[in-house]
Amino acid sequence: MSLEIVSQSRCFEGTQFVYRHLSVETGTPMRFAAYVPPQAAQEDLPVVWFLSGLTCTEENVTVKAGAQRVASELGLILVAPDTSPRGEGVPGDPEGSYDFGLGAGFYVDATEEPWARNYRMRSYLERELPALVAEELPADMARQGIMGHSMGGHGALTIALRNPDRFAAVSAFAPITSPLSCPWGEKALSRYLGPDRATWREYDACALIEDGARLPELLVDQGTADGFLESQLKPELLEEACRKADMPLTLRRQEGYDHSYFFISTFIEDHLRWHAARF
């Protein structure tokens, strides 16, 4: 699994890379961004994963969030994968919508045709890409955190809940807390996984918590002016699931903030410091 450097730029005394490699899981070339801070010249460093939302690639958070300055100060490697497989022959949404198919992998392993061959973002992120990062980057894989935004918040929460021993810290910005309970999730999971809703539960943070999965604590920021708040995100469902499970959740409702990267860039420093304190 060799890495090809697509680009590299000096940034806050470290280096912002974009890599490409051929994925066994997705059967396609995949790209990911990795910020490597200057401390990596002396030692292996903790890794914080950022999973992006609908329509995004690895570029959105890399360019818009302004995370590199703080990552450089704290000595954190930031890894941002793409949100879905891409390329010739990879099926998209026949209707051309933004919330399914290309750019909308939902961090699942699809079981339904024609999605099953390529849409394997769960296995890509739980197995393949971590192994590649461990092999190719100056990463201390004993110290990992994961965060995400919207669909990526859903991905971060569910991956962490299924792999609780892997992550020292977990957080999210405006996550889809329960795909079983919102239009985005119903559309994506029914097509990727089929009609049996019982198979959806392993991709739903609230359902995983109800079924016994646990994390030491969670940090979630949610803007009160987010246009998707009531219909798609529903943080109160995560709040209730954590309350019933006696699982610590810090849910911060940020007055006046929307769903954009202006919101993420405002609070990304808080999240990175929260992660760094737990390594």
Rank of each mutant, 00 (worst) to 15 (best):
V70F: 02
L180V: 01
M30I: 15
T111C: 01
L132R: 14
A34E: 02
V63T: 13
R120H: 05
F12L: 03
L129Y: 03
H275K: 09
D270E: 15
D99S: 12
G145S: 13
A198T: 01
Q68H: 15
A207F: 11
Q144R: 12
Q8H: 14
L208I: 08
C56W: 02
S231H: 07
V47P: 05
C206K: 07
W49Q: 07
S97E: 13
S123A: 13
G14E: 08
P248V: 06
D140S: 15
W274V: 09
A245Y: 10
F50A: 13
E113D: 12
P114K: 14
P216L: 07
N163F: 02
L189E: 01
L76I: 13
E112N: 03
E43F: 01
P85M: 13
G87E: 14
D211R: 05
S52G: 14
V220M: 10
G89S: 12
A156F: 10
A276W: 08
P183Q: 05
M1W: 04
T26C: 15
I264N: 09
S150H: 05
D226C: 05
E236W: 15
T266F: 07
L22I: 13
A71V: 08
E217P: 01
G53I: 04
T250V: 08
P183A: 12
A139E: 04
S123I: 06
L238G: 06
T199I: 01
A33K: 04
K244P: 01
E202A: 09
G152L: 10
S72T: 10
F279S: 11
F100I: 12
G194K: 01
G87K: 11
R122I: 00
